[in-house]
Structure formats: C-alpha cells, structure tokens
Amino acid sequence: MPAIASEIATLLDSGNAVTVSADSYRARHTGNTPPAAGASTTATRSWKPWFPVIDYDRCTNCMQCLSFCLFDVYNVDENSLIQVRNQENCKTNCPACSRVCPEVAIMFPKYSGSPINGEPVNASDLSREKMKVNVSSLLGGDIYSTLRNRSDQAKSRFSTERSADKALAERKRCLDKLQRDGFIPAEVLAEIDLTNLPSPEEIQRRAAAASAKAQAALAANAAK
C-alpha cells in the first residue's frame, strides 16, 4: 500500500476524518472519546455501531416494528411517522425487527446478509415477508394476544407443577430454537444471562406498551 494511503488509513482507523487536497491532507479526530494507547478504537467509542435504518421509500408506516420491539427503539414523530428514536437501546447483532417488517424496509448496514444490509429488495424477499405476515394471521392476527392466552394457560398448568428450574429450562429450549431458526444470532444469546431474564409478566407489559403506542399512532394516521 502506498505510503500516503497507508497513513490516511491509519488515521481513519484511529477515529480521524481526513480531508485530502491536491498536495496535502489534514486530519481531525471525530470519535466521542480519544482512543486510549494500545486499545482498539472499537472499544473506546461510546456509540453503538448497531441500529436500524428505515428505508422510507419502502416503509408504509404500518407500525409493526413499533409494536414488535420491546426495547423502545422506535417511536413516532409529531406527524405519527415511524422513527428510530432510541437507537442506543438496540441489541447488538439482533436484526429481529427487520425480519418482521412486511415491506423489508428496515436495514442494519453492519449486518452481513441481504437485504437487511441494504441490498436491493427482490421479489423473493418480499414473498418471504408476506409469508410471515400470513403466519401472523393464522395466529389470529394478534400475536401478543395469542401469547397472553398461552401464558394464562401455562400459568394454570404451572400452578400444579411450578418449578423455577423447569421454567428456566423451557426458556433455554425456546431460545435455542430461536437461535437454530436464525432468528437470534448466537452472539446475542451468549450475552443473555439466562438466570436473570425478565419475567413473562414484564415481557407482556413491554409488549402491551409497544402495542398501545403502535395502535395510537395508527389511529392518529387514520384520523388524518
């Protein structure tokens, strides 16, 4: 690699923006914190290089992402238009919201696979998404309500055989299945403390809150 290109690459890799003119270049540090000596720049930056990006050319403002995400990443603006509001809440390497988007409108530029990484969306991508929506319809159109019913049934069952160990094993089995299906990357699961998962009630509370926000936004849009 020629010397000048190598020097610029080094500056870039240590968090500097570089302006190159015809006969010289100058650099300015852009990172939130200066890189520590000997540390990789990845470890010293305070922003998370993982967040969803909405393709507004495809987005239909259906609020599926808002309803789906339990971490409050999405919200709507004053015109009830979906937005990425709390990107720092996003779980690194988890592209689950982009998988539930029926229009394939949610991208993660740092993701490796297409079309989540921003590659053009083709017909097979769209038909795959439509199939997921149909599965949702088969469940009665309201996944959360179905989950609530299942949870209620499970509670009555657990009342006779309540066991924290059994519940934990069941969660582990479910998470393993999600991983096998490619829904949750292994690195994300590795970070989850299985002994300290939110309770089903907490998950349902978050889901209900997200769903309520989505319903309110849809109602506001319908009233326009």
């Binding site: 020629p2 290109a5 610029i8 870039l12 500097n16 923006a17 302006t19 190159v20 967040f51």
Partner: peptide, 23 residues
C-alpha cells in the same frame, strides 16, 4: 483508498458514515 490517493483529486475520508448518522 489507494485509487483515490493516486487520482490526485480532493476528497474527504471518514471513519464511519453510520457513526456520523448516529451522532
């Protein structure tokens, strides 16, 4: 990057466009 440097044209190089958008 080498192509750009060799071209002699003026350009601006940034570590990460995603970071710029995020911040």
């Amino acid at each position: 990057l080498e192509q750009l440097c060799a071209s002699g044209e003026e350009f601006e190089a940034v570590p990460d466009l995603c970071e710029m958008a995020a911040t």
